[in-house]
């Protein structure tokens, strides 16, 4: 039972005589022992990411082909009570109304700021330390509210030669869209869990040279992560490319 639901349970039980087969009488409030932090709690990007500017300009994908290097825009605030309202219509509208640029081939500059609505937001070029790109941790690292956010992300896939018949495969917690070279490739609507290869595109072609991948992720409450890669005709991860942020 997740946090928000439990808060409601406790609030209700405080005024209810019988619930869930509960005997009459008072109910203790949650009584936690002291739980000291077990690790680094500072707001720093380096806990879960490596700033890409600190590393070489191009990096190989993760062992299983996951794309771990992204330019991530600081979150755009959006009130979302729960994630199962994230229908395809809802997320298309939300992304269209909260877009930093309608040019889906643009590659922002690391460190630059853009204005979306009344918010000025900065781009961060980051390498995730795991195959998952954790946007909840991103918000914590930059000391922003963790829930009720839209994230825009951009990365550049550098191919030594054309790679036809690949499929983009993504998992998202909780909703998102992906574009390849300006064309829409994936829509993940509904309240999804971060499941590898949860949604897979129609066959695509990675052209020789630079390919621009744009992602938009939306989340109300709860953890917010995604993982994306390309699969070949046999369903095996495509790895013969490099990733950059320029």
């Amino acid at each position: 039972m997740p946090a928000v639901a439990f808060t409601v349970v406790i609030a209700l039980l405080a005024n209810a005589d019988i619930a869930f087969g509960q005997p009459p009488g008072g109910r203790p409030r949650p009584n936690l022992p002291p739980i000291p932090p077990k690790g680094d709690t500072t707001h720093t990007l380096t806990r879960d990411f490596v700033p890409a500017s600190n590393t070489k300009s191009e990096t190989a994908p993760h062992d299983n082909g996951f794309i771990q290097r992204w330019l991530a825009l600081e979150p755009i605030r959006k009130e979302i009570q729960r994630n199962n309202i994230l229908t395809e219509t809802y997320i298309r509208t939300a992304f269209a109304e909260n877009n930093f640029s309608t040019d889906f081939n643009v590659v922002p500059k690391n460190g630059r700021k853009v204005k979306v609505g009344d918010q000025r937001l900065q781009w961060h070029a980051l390498d995730s330390k795991t195959f998952i790109f954790n946007l909840y941790n991103f918000t914590y690292a930059i000391n922003k509210p963790p829930y009720g956010n839209i994230f825009w992300l951009v990365t550049v896939i550098n191919c030594p030669e054309e790679i036809p018949n690949v499929r983009m495969a993504a998992g998202v917690n909780s909703g998102g869209m992906f574009w390849l070279n300006g064309e829409e490739a994936l829509v993940l609507s509904g309240d999804r869990d971060m499941v590898v290869d949860n949604v897979v595109s129609q066959p695509l072609t990675l052209k020789k040279g630079k390919n621009i991948v744009r992602a938009a992720i939306i989340n109300g409450p709860g953890m917010c992560t995604f993982a994306v890669r390309f699969l070949d005709e046999n369903g095996s991860p495509v790895k013969n490319f490099t990733i950059s942020y320029e």
Partner: peptide
């Protein structure tokens, strides 16, 4: 995952007012 407070409230009010023993499919 991430429920809304409002809908959870409506369910739990029903649960909280359930007082009788159940047959077959208890709450």
């Amino acid at each position: 995952m991430k429920p809304t407070i409002l809908t959870s409230l409506s369910i739990l009010v029903m649960l909280a007012t359930q007082t009788s023993a159940q047959i077959g499919q208890p709450f």
